[in-house]
């Protein structure tokens, strides 16, 4: 876009809009759908969050009522919020750093080893329901791989019922989520790293860059800054949306709600109890958390290397 001169702003807006006719025609199919399935739902959700909509009686406007109930009265929501934040604060940054670290190491390889390593790290995130294998690994009796292994090594005497013991639920879910989390952001980093101009490194070495860590900070990271920003969006959004892993491994409801997250809580109220107004308030809180964190991290990342 920057290559072309900016539009002729002496022209009237209406004239410029008329001139853009073909452009708007081409945009129409995508953005019509985008409006119906993305923009409108967000607006509807925000609207209903101020009402008592339950799908069969007319919605009543109750102002901040739903939000007040969420924050002040609903202990289950506070548990879900706390779990989600722990999830996000651990898996978000850790998976982001892991994506970057592995992409950076993989970048040292060429040819077949490179393709193989990319596949090994990326495969879990695309293999859909493959994480259900963790159900077998974590089986609560001695036939589970983890229990069997630990008992053979004499670390434990009795099988541990992993997903039914409150203190293990969240850490185990975090580990599984990390296993799943090297996705689109990871690919963006690998791709970004391979395009860095090699002469930058040679110039850097002459200018006094002494080891790979300095090289990483002063040359590599600034060079892939746009990919860093993109990867952050992918990892953050993912880290707040954790639900399926929890539902399928810890069950719903999980032991003492140890695995409940905002999304499982949302599904519970919207999908099972049809409290649409209340569920909309939950969705809006989640929306605010995701977008807010993303915007904040974008601000921070602009400073990398400066």
């Amino acid at each position: 876009m920057a290559a072309e001169p900016r539009g002729d702003y002496t022209e009237k807006l209406s004239a410029r809009i008329r001139k853009g006719g073909v452009s708007y025609m081409m945009l129409a199919p995508y953005f019509a759908l985008f409006f119906f399935f993305t923009v409108l739902p967000v607006l509807i959700s925000m609207f209903f969050s101020f009402t008592t909509f339950d799908m069969h009686s007319l919605p009543q406007f109750i102002g901040w009522g739903n939000y007040a109930k969420l924050m002040l009265e609903d202990d289950l929501f506070i548990t879900a919020l706390k779990n989600t934040l722990i999830f996000a604060v651990v898996t978000g940054p850790v998976s982001y750093v892991l994506c970057l670290l592995f992409a950076w190491i993989i970048n040292e390889f060429r040819g077949f080893p490179r393709a193989l390593l990319t596949l090994v790290f990326y495969a879990p995130s695309i293999s859909g329901q493959a994480y259900l294998i963790w159900n077998i690994i974590l089986t609560g009796d001695r036939y589970g791989y983890l229990n069997g292994f630990l008992m053979q090594m004499d670390f434990i005497q009795q099988a541990i019922v992993w997903m039914k013991t409150e203190k293990y639920v969240l850490p185990v879910l975090i580990v599984v989520q990390l296993w799943l989390s090297l996705g689109t952001g990871f690919l963006a980093f690998i791709a970004g790293l391979q395009t860095i101009d090699k002469s930058l490194y040679e110039a850097g070495a002459i200018d006094g860059v002494k080891n790979r860590w300095q090289e990483l900070w002063f040359i590599t990271l600034p060079a892939i800054k746009p990919q860093l920003m993109f990867g952050a969006v992918m990892q953050i959004t993912q880290s707040f949306a954790i639900a399926d892993v929890s539902l399928n491994l810890a069950g719903n409801p999980s032991v003492n709600n140890a695995g409940s997250t905002i999304v499982t809580f949302l599904l519970d109220h919207g999908g099972i109890r049809f409290e649409m107004g209340y569920a909309s308030a939950i969705a809006t809180v989640l929306f605010g958390l995701m977008v807010g964190t993303n915007k904040l991290v974008q601000l921070l990342l602009r400073r990398v290397g400066s």
């Binding site: 876009m1 072309e4 900016r6 539009g7 807006l13 410029r16 809009i17 001139k19 853009g20 073909v22 452009s23 708007y24 945009l27 953005f31 985008f34 399935f37 993305t38 923009v39 409108l40 739902p41 967000v42 509807i44 959700s45 209903f48 969006v233 992918m234 953050i236 959004t237 993912q238 707040f240 949306a241 639900a243 999304v263 949302l266 599904l267 919207g270 999908g271 649409m276 569920a279 909309s280 969705a283 989640l286 929306f287 995701m290 977008v291 993303n294 915007k295």
Partner: peptide, 28 residues
């Protein structure tokens, strides 16, 4: 192309990547 609203539309798309589909599931 250069036309009014291009930037706004694209920033809406970027914004849409910042939340997951679970947020819009019920209205959807």
């Amino acid at each position: 192309h250069r036309f009014p609203g291009a930037k706004l539309l694209f920033s809406m798309v970027i914004l849409s990547m910042m939340f997951s589909w679970t947020v819009t599931q019920i209205p959807n």
